[in-house]
């Protein structure tokens, strides 16, 4: 499978703080990758760099074969528009636009508005009845689903989700994860940043960051279904086991190089122990 994304020795420095330190990573087309790590480990920074929302201080990022460091801010914006769908923990809906208008805003900045398609996208996340509501009139779960509909409306190759269930209750978490499973089955490449092992357990691959360094890269079985399909039920029914990993040996930056702990199976408990 060809790689949709290649990250080579990427670092990001904010003043005295080194948010990312020499991270190298490849993400094949169609993979569901979970990025884990404690607060301040550089998860969100990595997502922002992958999503062209931020630029690395050093290193290279290739998205679909395009070297991002060679692109101007305008070209980066175009990549973001064309290739990336963003799902935020804080939803980031425009407060004075309705659910439908928020989805249409993504169409507007991408190419051309299509109210019918935007309505269908909301229907797809179960919000057909709430299309005319403002974000303030929606629950957190509903806002997150609007955010997902907005992320998907332009059919991006890569879906980046930053703590997509961080602000949601169990029921809404399940709804959101079901939608991600459906997208994954349809061939989308998904990168989910999370500190929740239950959420990470849905992914086919889990990487763990600590202090800006990649300390673990664990490949499990590819996720094959949503919660409603009997597989990948999240925390209650993990579909794979996480094997023991040596913490010392895992503090490595380059997958494939000597010392990097490669895991093939994982469970939420073990992921929790790592992160």
């Amino acid at each position: 499978m060809s790689n949709l994304m290649e990250i080579e020795n990427v670092s990001k420095i904010y003043g005295p703080l080194k948010a990312l330190s020499g991270v190298t990573l490849s993400v094949p087309q169609g993979q569901w990758l979970a990025v884990m790590g404690p607060s301040g480990s550089g998860k969100s920074t990595l997502m922002n760099i992958i999503g062209c929302l931020d630029t690395p201080s050093s290193g290279e990022v290739f998205l679909d074969g395009v070297r991002l460091s060679e692109l101007s801010p305008g070209e980066l914006t175009a990549i973001r528009r064309e290739a990336v769908g963003l799902i935020f923990q804080q939803f980031h809906l425009i407060s004075h636009l309705t659910a439908l208008e928020n989805v249409m805003a993504a169409q507007f900045y991408h190419s051309m508005v299509d109210e019918r398609e935007a309505s269908e996208a909301l229907e797809g996340v179960g919000l057909a009845e709430r299309a005319g509501h403002l974000p303030s009139q929606l629950s957190g779960g509903e806002q997150q689903r609007v955010c997902i509909a907005r992320a998907l409306i332009n059919h991006p190759k890569l879906i980046l989700a930053d703590e997509p269930t961080g602000n949601l209750d169990e029921l809404n978490e399940k709804l959101v994860m079901d939608i991600l499973h459906k997208l994954h089955r349809e061939g989308a490449t998904i990168v989910v940043v999370t500190h929740a092992p239950e959420v990470a357990a849905h992914a086919g691959r889990v990487i763990v960051l600590e202090h800006g360094r990649l300390v673990s890269d664990s490949v499990g079985e590819a996720p094959s279904g949503g919660a409603g399909e009997g597989e990948g039920e999240g925390a209650d029914d993990p579909k794979a086991d996480f094997s023991e990993a040596d913490g010392e040996a895992a503090v490595l930056n380059r997958p494939g190089e000597e010392g990097l702990e490669k895991n093939t199976d994982f469970s939420p408990e073990e992921i929790r122990a790592r992160s």
Partner: peptide
Amino acid sequence: LKKALGAGAGR
């Protein structure tokens, strides 16, 4: 957010 959605700075 609008920039994240793909709007250029000028727009």
